[in-house]
Computed example of a mutant assay.
Amino acid sequence: MMMSLLYKLVQIPRFSDDRGSLSFVEFDQILDFSIKRVYWLYDFKKDRGGHAHKDLQQFIFCTHGSVDFILDDGQNRESVTLDSPDKGLYIIKPLWREVTNFQNNPQVIVLASDIYKESDYIKSYEEFKTWKFNS
C-alpha cells in the first residue's frame, strides 16, 4: 500500500486579523472519526513514539514550535514536519511512528478515535512488521 493512503497532511483553516489568528477542525469536514480522546505532548526531553497502533486513527497538530514525525509502513519511511498550528497530520492506517527533532519548545495536540487501550499498541518494530504483513 502506498504511504499516501496511510496518512495525509491537512491544511487547517486559519483566520487572521489585527487581533491574531484562529484555527479550527470541523469533524465532518476533515476527520472520518469521532473524537474519543484528546491528549497533548510538551516539555519534550527525548524522542517519543516508537510504537504503532492497530486500529487507532489520530489527527495531530503542533500549536507551538516544531517536531518531526517519522512514519514507517514496514517497508518505507517518511518524515513529516509539523511546524505550524494550521497544519495537521492525519494518521489513517497503522504506521510505526517516532517523534523527534524538537524545536522551540513544541506543544503537540492529538485527537484520537478511541480511548486508551494498551491492546491497540505494538511496541516492537519487528512485531509491527510481522503483524502488518500477516494482517
Rank of each mutant, 00 (worst) to 15 (best):
S4W: 00
L5A: 08
L6Q: 03
K8W: 02
L9K: 08
L9M: 15
V10K: 04
V10S: 04
V10C: 13
Q11D: 15
F15D: 08
S16T: 15
D18G: 04
S21G: 10
L22H: 06
L22G: 01
S23Q: 05
E26P: 00
F27I: 14
D28Y: 04
Q29T: 14
I30L: 05
F33N: 05
I35D: 01
K36A: 09
R37P: 06
W40K: 09
D43K: 10
F44D: 00
K45R: 12
K46N: 10
K46V: 11
K46S: 11
R48L: 07
R48K: 06
G49M: 08
A52K: 01
A52I: 04
K54I: 14
Q57I: 12
I60R: 02
H64C: 09
F69P: 02
L71S: 01
R77D: 06
S84F: 05
D86I: 10
K87V: 14
L89S: 03
Y90K: 02
I91G: 00
P94Q: 06
E98V: 13
V99L: 14
V99D: 01
V99G: 01
T100K: 12
Q103P: 04
P106H: 12
I109S: 03
I109A: 06
I109M: 11
D114T: 13
I115M: 11
E118V: 13
E118K: 15
S119Q: 13
D120T: 10
Y121A: 13
Y121H: 11
I122F: 02
I122Y: 03
K123C: 13
Y125N: 05
F128Q: 01
K129Y: 10
K129T: 13
T130V: 11
K132V: 07
